[in-house]
Amino acid sequence: MTLYAIIFYLLAALIIISTGIAITRRNMVHVVIYLVFSFFGTAMLFYLLGAPLLALLQIIIYAGAVMVLFLFIIMMLRVEAPEISMFPFSQWVPAAALCAASVVLGLLLLIPESQLGKPLETAIATPSDFGFYLFKRHWLTIELVSILLLVALVGAFHLGKSKLSAKSEDPS
């Protein structure tokens, strides 16, 4: 086992354990922290696989921005831990079945490739390579996604604004 393999398994264990803890905690702030640890592990995994740019984007966007916003909202709203309750059988069985099916399908896709145990070639994508690849081949997708985000932003702004102006017109 090479050093890289050892690091890989350590990171994989970190990701799985921290995500597992995250979905079983009742305290929402603890959930956020364990998810951040999990994102850290993912970022280091990206770095290990030769994509430093992707690793840092993972930290900046997911660990640094998205989770901070989650934390912000949890702290503002003082979300209390929900009562312990078991979901009805009919609600979680389809979800579990879907998960199991996707795992089986994924394994079936992997096994006939006869690539089991064959390590990926190490390759390093420099930031400029990555940028050229993304913006030369997939520029249309990127533009579409950014328009989608912009629409969501404008929509959220509109929803918040109409409520605000209605309140200010209220004479009381």
């Binding site: 840092l56 900046i60 660990a63």
Partner: peptide, 14 residues
């Protein structure tokens, strides 16, 4: 790091 600037932004966001 060849992404040193992003490293700094990542840390400051953490």
């Amino acid at each position: 790091l060849n992404v040193g600037l992003l490293f700094i932004i990542a840390l400051s966001s953490l």
